[in-house]
Amino acid sequence: MSNDRTRRTTPAQILLVEDNPGDVRLTEEALAEGRIENDLHVVTDGVEALEFLERRGEHADAPRPDLVLLDLNLPRKNGDEVLEVMNDDPDLQRIPVIVLTSSKAEEDVISSYELCANAYLTKPVDPTEFIETIRAFEQFWLSIVRLPPEERP
């Protein structure tokens, strides 16, 4: 019996919405060293995230992400606003969103899940723990979970 879960025919498309260059670098490092082939796309604010997701402007040729790693504390549009737009758009609401933020505030956790985030991860301060968190995310979301197709059957 083959294991379809661990076999991808194309690289996973990941959209990282993060304005902290250090966290971007750590995420890139963790995903580059992982076992799952992926293309990481990085945008630094909520407005650019929506342009990427909606394939507008300079992101007109952007691939549809298999999942989104979303910080909450972003310039121009925050993570909650991005989640609201995604949740209201039938084409975007099926893309899994994992909130990856420094906030441990219970109200942020509740708000994220109310806005249909699929998971909420608090960024560890320690760089080694941060990389371990990203690797655990990668293992679970890209090899165990079955992600939805781009188009409805």
Rank of each mutant, 00 (worst) to 15 (best):
T6G: 11
D23W: 07
F137E: 00
E48M: 02
L142W: 03
R64D: 05
E129K: 15
R25F: 12
W141H: 08
E18H: 07
S143M: 09
P65V: 07
I144C: 04
D71C: 06
E107F: 10
V82A: 09
L74W: 09
L121D: 02
M1H: 05
W141G: 05
A30G: 03
Q139G: 03
E81C: 03
N38F: 00
G46Y: 06
T10Y: 10
Y113L: 04
L100T: 00
L53A: 06
I95Y: 04
L40H: 01
L40T: 01
L50Q: 06
R135I: 03
N73F: 01
Q13D: 12
V42F: 03
V109I: 05
L40V: 01
N3T: 07
N73A: 07
P149L: 02
E129I: 08
N87V: 10
K123N: 13
V17L: 08
E54R: 15
A60C: 02
T10M: 11
R152N: 01
T128C: 10
A12E: 09
R55E: 05
H59Q: 12
C116A: 15
T122W: 01
G57W: 12
L40W: 00
A105G: 04
V145G: 07
G22S: 14
D91M: 15
T44A: 04
P153G: 03
V47Y: 00
V24P: 05
V125E: 15
E138H: 03
P63M: 11
Q93D: 12
V145S: 09
I134C: 13
I36G: 02
L15K: 00
V145E: 14
E106H: 13
F137Q: 00
A119H: 08
F137T: 00
H41W: 01
R55A: 11
L31A: 03
K123H: 14
D80W: 13
R8Q: 13
L53N: 09
L26V: 06
G34K: 04
R135E: 15
L16Y: 08
D19N: 14
R8H: 15
R5G: 15
L147P: 04
I36L: 04
N87L: 14
N87Q: 15
I134T: 11
A105M: 12
D89W: 01
L115P: 10
L74P: 07
D91H: 15
E150I: 13
T128F: 15
P124G: 08
F137V: 01
A32W: 01
V43A: 02
R56V: 09
L70N: 10
L92T: 14
D108I: 07
E81G: 05
E151Y: 00
N118F: 01
Q139M: 04
L74K: 10
P127L: 09
E106L: 12
L121G: 02
N20W: 11
E138V: 01
D126I: 08
W141P: 06
E48L: 05
N20T: 14
R25W: 11
G22D: 15
